[in-house]
């Protein structure tokens, strides 16, 4: 399919299995085609992808197919932003971060792993006030479910049956907590995570070998900050 044919399909309001097939084909095209193709698709395609994701997230009763489509959409967004052009377009659309944060669901471990990795990557590219945008998106998303903004991340970190999710969540914690230049803000974010449940589970996390690198980063930065303090 050409990029315009995908745009037409997405605009036609297809859903369920037809949408899933279209999105899987789009994911492959976004991954394998040159950036110019992604560029062409992106003009209208990004907005349409976000529209579909928003529609799925707004559905009161989410069927299994809806969750599959959400996951496929996240994979399309990741493929789309895997180049400088797509990344700039995603960061340029304020809905992107909010919809990514809203799609975080500790019960859907594979999708949450991918979302959290995307947010961590976006957080460390050094784009101006990106940290504030991510925190704002997480706050708004959490408030919709009457939760603290970091609660889903700590919940993901506790899931011993999903080690990839645990690693991704610890990466996001490190990405967020090391972002501020201001020492007080770094300490504030770290303490917020600790209060939100991280303090209680840190001792048991040491048992998980896959987390060694991220826990080392977390402790080193905590140490550096207390010395600076």
């Amino acid at each position: 399919l050409s990029s315009q044919e995908y745009v037409h399909e997405l605009r036609s309001g297809i859903s369920e299995d037809k949408l899933l097939n279209c999105l899987e084909s789009l994911r492959v095209s976004l991954t394998s085609n040159p950036v110019s193709w992604v560029n062409n698709f992106g003009h209208e395609g990004l907005g349409l992808l976000l529209d579909v994701l928003e529609r799925l997230l707004d559905k009161k009763q989410q069927e299994n197919i809806d969750k599959k489509n959400q996951h496929k959409l996240i994979q399309c967004l990741k493929a789309f932003m895997n180049n400088k052009y797509g990344l700039q377009r995603i960061l340029g659309d304020e809905r992107s971060l909010l919809l990514l944060a809203r799609a975080i669901d500790p019960k859907q471990t594979n999708m949450m792993t991918e979302i959290v990795k995307i947010l961590s990557a976006v957080c460390i590219i050094g784009e101006e006030n990106i940290l504030d945008k991510i925190l704002a998106a997480m706050t708004i998303a959490a408030e919709r479910n009457n939760k603290e903004r970091f609660a889903p991340i700590v919940e993901g970190l506790e899931n011993h049956e999903a080690q990839q999710l645990q690693v991704a969540c610890m990466q996001l914690i490190n990405a967020l907590v090391t972002s501020p230049d201001d020492l007080d803000f770094r300490i504030h974010l770290r303490n917020e995570f600790l209060r939100c449940g991280l303090k209680k589970i840190l001792p048991e996390l040491k048992e998980t070998e896959e987390l060694d690198i991220q826990l080392k980063v977390f402790n080193e930065n905590k140490e550096e900050d207390s010395i600076e303090l």
Partner: peptide, 26 residues
Amino acid sequence: EGDETGVMDSLMEALQSGAAFRDRRK
């Protein structure tokens, strides 16, 4: 240079290895 793909992949590798966090503010 704008046509370079793999931007997210390399960011994610830097996160995975911990390299992303070394001297983040220097």
